[in-house]
């Protein structure tokens, strides 16, 4: 499941999945800006049929580990 998450994340940001690690953040990934973050939220909601709360959206921009953690919790993986 984590591979699927990383693959979708990389596809939306149009970056090589190998560039992404747990500490990746908007400071280290140029493509991870606030609009692309919302594109990520939209893509993950649609792909995994989950609802992400407004309060979770800024938290998920802290780093990739936090993003994945919240997604996996919602998926129940």
């Amino acid at each position: 499941m984590t591979n699927n998450v990383k693959k979708l994340f990389a596809t939306i940001l149009q970056v090589d999945p190998h560039q992404i690690n747990d500490s990746s953040s908007p400071d280290t990934l140029e493509a991870w800006d606030s609009i692309n973050h919302l594109n990520l939220i939209a893509a993950f909601e649609d792909e995994f049929s989950i609802d992400i709360e407004p309060e979770e959206i800024p938290l998920m921009m802290q780093n990739y580990a936090t993003f994945v953690s919240i997604i996996l919790t919602k998926i129940g993986a």
Binding site: P26, E30, D33, S34, I35, P58, M61
Partner: peptide, 10 residues
């Protein structure tokens, strides 16, 4: 600010 990151990159 909710728009801080928006300003940083756009």
């Amino acid at each position: 600010s909710p728009s801080y990151d928006f300003l940083k990159k756009r």
